[in-house]
Amino acid sequence: MAMKFTKSLCWGLGAAVCIGLFLAGVNRPVSAEALAQTQKQANGQITERYGDTLVVAQKATHQLFSHKKHVIGVGLECDACHPDIFQKKRGAAKAAGDYNMKSLEKGKYCGACHNGDEAFGVTDKKDCITCHGSNMQPPEKIVWKKPNKAVFDHQAHVQDIGLECGDCHDKIFTMKIGAAEAKGDFTMASFKKGRYCGACHNGDDAFDAQSQCDSCHFAPTKKIIFTKPVKTVVFDHKIHVGKAGLLCETCHKEVFVMGSGVLSGLETFRSDDPAAKRKHLEELHEKLCGTCHNSDQAFGFQTRCTVCHIGVKGLKQMKAQAEKGDAAEQGEH
């Protein structure tokens, strides 16, 4: 009974306070600046004016930490965290290199309070979302576009291999889409030095990054038309990788070393002596396509010339066909 009375008293008081606040709000003189600064439009879009500069859109950025929640919500003083736990400088913790879940679990950084005792713990799975947002699902696959197209199977690494987020983030990869691509050294050469994927893919902990190219990279789907040293030689990756079942390394390790410019450096051979010319062409074929196309592993380069040498007319036909049909089949490499 007493409870009920108290409850209704609370309601009454609450209503009185509300009315009071409402009236106060109506009567309160509004400063000219406040009026000028904030106007809510009928469509709900916030437009704030700072003179001629308008704020036409404002959206929250994804932040792991909110000062507002901790200072206003919880009521912490600045020196509860600064400077003992966090330096008072934006990005200082990240720059320290150990600002990750492992450190937090050991009671460093956020973990100083977020230990499951003073504040929710950092190991409790249901609390991940509190800091990391609702989209805590790691991307299933990442497709890198720079400097070359490659795919990374996130799920395979986390679920099948059982890696923890902290194993790669943020020491090896910053946990931000496009962060690695934005750096100039996200290359195979860096992997060789143990950076990025190369941290594990060293042939010891995981397959060597210098092998098994097609685990991450794709063969081009578009036919390559060579213009050097002679015009209109066509090469189709699809047949070689698909039907023939070749690996990238089969050709790209020694014969067509990627990025070596093995073909772009060749000039058309000119000679008045037919024998010399023939010899040169034979040697060239043997060195390149002839490695396999020797009538043994694949048709010999002395046979079926027109399979590759399609001629100017053939090229024209091919181009016309491409424009008509499979425009979508663009090169990916």
């Binding site: 001629d52 500069t53 308008l54 704020v55 404002q58 959206k59 929250a60 507002k68 200072v71």
Partner: peptide, 21 residues
């Protein structure tokens, strides 16, 4: 400006005179 610890937001500013954003 650098000292402000308020939670950052992405803001689109528009110049009313030139229309630039």
């Amino acid at each position: 400006v650098d000292a402000c610890p308020a939670d950052p937001v992405q803001v689109t500013f528009k110049d009313a005179r030139t229309g630039k954003t």
